[in-house]
Nucleic acid binder design. Sequence first.
DNA 1: ATAATTATTTTAATCGTTTAACTATGAGGG
DNA 2: CCCTCATAGTTAAACGATTAAAATAATTAT
Lengths: 340, 340
Amino acid sequence: MATMRDVALLAGVSTATVSHVVNGSKKLSPETTEKVLRAISQVNYLPNTVAKSLRMGQTHTIGVLVEDIRGLPVAAIVSGISETLAKSGYKTIFHDLHLLEKLYNQYEQIGTYRQRINDGISLLQSANVDGIIYVAMHDRHLDYLLDPMETPLVYAYSHGTENDTYVTYSNKDSAADMIRYLLRKNHKRIAVIAGHPHSYPTAQRLLGIQTALQQAGLPLPASYIRYGDWEYESGKKETLAILQLDPLPTAIFAMNDLMAAGCMAAIQEKGLSIPKDMAVAGFDNREIASCLQPPLTTIALPTPEIGSRAAVHIMDMIHNPQPHPCREIIRCSIIERASI
Amino acid sequence: MATMRDVALLAGVSTATVSHVVNGSKKLSPETTEKVLRAISQVNYLPNTVAKSLRMGQTHTIGVLVEDIRGLPVAAIVSGISETLAKSGYKTIFHDLHLLEKLYNQYEQIGTYRQRINDGISLLQSANVDGIIYVAMHDRHLDYLLDPMETPLVYAYSHGTENDTYVTYSNKDSAADMIRYLLRKNHKRIAVIAGHPHSYPTAQRLLGIQTALQQAGLPLPASYIRYGDWEYESGKKETLAILQLDPLPTAIFAMNDLMAAGCMAAIQEKGLSIPKDMAVAGFDNREIASCLQPPLTTIALPTPEIGSRAAVHIMDMIHNPQPHPCREIIRCSIIERASI
DNA sequence: ATAATTATTTTAATCGTTTAACTATGAGGG
DNA sequence: CCCTCATAGTTAAACGATTAAAATAATTAT
């Protein structure tokens, strides 16, 4: 690879001049500029980012730490992050912790998790990233690991603590929006298939559901709330339980698309028609939603925006020495299909 | 951030000594080692990778260039890549070209595509990556862009040209395997819903299908081959056409899960039962496959292996100055479910 | 005791940039 | 003709690590 020296030699100037041409950091005569430019393209010179970073003390690189890129919303968030960063000339260095969601819930392993997160942060730090974006599947805070003044940190998708900057989506409002949508379609008895009972999304979405129903003056009987485990089979199972109820609800709101799919299967197995006999709503807008029969009305996570906003925040924090923590909660949108 | 100098000062030795302790590059007295180690943990020293890279001329970083991380197999491949690289102490720097598959097919845009790929490569090169892994959705060769001797390049998922090293999966053999599986289940009349007629996967899979049928002495009438566009709706439409045929096939092999889902919907709408009246096979093993009713028997792409093997190859090429190009074609596996 | 050998640690150059400080050149003013 | 000032370009010291070669200290051999 050609260096600045090669260019300087060929153009008959000093490396300082080449540097000034490359960065426009000083006014130079048109002839010199021309000479240097010609030499640059002649030897096919590309600036050595490593040397530049060492000298400048910043790498223009953001470390993106993901718990697992295979987690579905993660890729879309990373996509949003890297697109926005690239537009501002930042590179993305990416470290995957391979922390599968399922393993995470085994509480006894928490120690090894902290270890791996710690290692990931160290890796990024020793690569001299200018900032770190942490994409977690669950709410988590790394403040025990990282002096936030040392390397700026933004959480994307999950919540941080009060003093952190994070970008997430609105569980509560989005669920409330879906309820309001169902109400507008004249549904008054709405059953809910929730996720894991103690998880944050379950609690928040439930809150939104209750708020929206309350505002409409409608009850949410306890029997209308069933808890699944986010998987297809649990959607099926809980729906079968719901179908025993009297009075039967006219709509079921499942807290993710997988359970909604199971829900629809159960309804159809019982010979009921969707949405005529029973409406179904989902959450997540996964690929499966548009392939179900009928296509599933669901809530789309604002994943590209989450990534993009996280990128904006981290760049802000890098340029602003003393920024106040910023919480940004993005509203989801309802994807109308034929299941309601 | 503490530097080697800080450690050296605190321990009362030279930076060279610190370096030797850190890297074990020279035998030192136990007392000195001890002193240095203590100083390191006292000032919380992390080696500056940027400085090390500049000095050593290699970054221990692999550039992963993906056309679009949102493409479904891509995240799993990247996951495999980064996991394997991390185990050998390599970092992954990742650049997403945001080249959506659909846009790519607009041939007139090919110029801007080359431009973006070119820019992506330059970005990675000026970050001094030790090698590049290119994860493309389609067969593509970048030899017009990159002197392969300068930066080692491995293609993952898609094919390269004859002189490239690439890791991909077997379209032909996998399709043949599925046919043989159907034959073992006593299906003799098998219809096919192919993808885009001129695409490489379509051609290769068709070849495998024909080979397997021929070996079994069975015909594949032209009327049994229908071409879709990889989307759900086309699977439905082509199945309706197939259901008009006489004699009716006993199985339909769709070349991806989306079309298989459409196929199943069409079959069930006509009041036929799966797999009793008609068996259905898919390709890709997307999330949807396990959520269909009945769950879809399909072919799983060896995505983690593709990534992992690509990582191994790139590391080989970095350490081997004059490597011969290597083509690795990984066989897929059949995921048996209830649709056959 | 001294030389030779070995073990341990240091010196200083280097990687490819950036940039403050400096030099050289020329223009304009008195 | 000398002085000031602006302009154009150069010099050389960083940035934080590695490492050959040199220096020093500790052992062993003679």
